[in-house]
Design a protein around this nucleic acid. Structure first.
Length: 216
DNA sequence: CCCTGATTCGC
DNA sequence: GCGAATCAGG
């Protein structure tokens, strides 16, 4: 692969967006992050934010004042959207509610009225939008006891990562109540190709066999 | 361990 | 110019 205009353009764009070299390399394909970094430098796109430490032993740099005209949107760290939205992660949040140690979430009446969400919660943070009334979630009863036990155990060792700390190799299983501070992601090593660690894969992906005993 | 960017240096 | 290897740091 060579650095065609298009590829360079993509590189510039993504770099400006704050994408990491590895992400850019993946996007472009055919190059490693090293190649990307090397190119970035040759293009003179390297960052170096804090203006002061610009150790330029350049004694005589005539033409080319290079003013502070470097609007770096990085301070705000837009950071591409979280990669959490991997794929079929739909039914995930389900078991997350299997957590017992919870005072009084929203178990109060009005179970079907997303119109008036907050109110119930103590003077905490505002509840998240939560427009939809919880997607189909497998009742805890459908999950094998083993898997559940395993999850309980694992969640004690969870790394408690924040959204931004998740990568393609960390378990993205949510734990706790998103509406409060008691919320984080498992973060343990995920199974290659899967968004969760072994324990959470166990409760996330059901062979949908245990529910077919519906006979009558 | 995973990741990040920075630099070097043979090609 | 290119980018693997290496370095330095989180």
């Amino acid at each position: 692969m060579s650095w065609t205009d298009e590829r360079v353009e993509t590189l510039k764009k993504m770099w400006a967006e704050g994408q990491s070299a590895s992400q850019i390399a993946k996007e472009l394909g055919g190059v490693t992050r090293n190649a990307v970094i090397g190119k970035v430098h040759r293009l003179g796109l390297s960052n170096r934010v804090g203006g002061p430490a610009t150790p330029e032993p350049k004694p005589a740099a005539p033409a080319r004042p290079e003013p502070a005209a470097a609007p770096r949107p990085e301070a705000v760290a837009p950071r591409a959207a979280p990669q959490v939205e991997d794929e079929p992660v739909a039914a995930a949040p389900a078991a997350a509610r299997a957590e017992p140690p919870r005072p009084a979430p929203a178990a109060a009446p009005t179970p079907v009225q997303p119109a008036a969400p907050v109110s119930v919660s103590p003077a905490r943070k505002q509840i998240v939008p939560a427009g939809q009334p919880l997607p189909p979630q497998p009742s805890a009863g459908e999950i094998s006891p083993e898997a559940l036990a395993s999850v309980r155990e694992v969640e004690k060792r969870a790394r408690r990562l924040t959204l931004m700390e998740l990568t393609e190799r960390t378990c993205k299983w949510p734990i706790g109540d998103p509406a409060t501070d008691d919320f984080w992601f498992c973060g343990l090593g995920s199974i290659p190709g899967k968004p969760y660690c072994e324990a959470h894969v166990g409760v996330a992906f059901q062979p949908m066999s245990a529910r077919r005993d519906r006979r009558r």
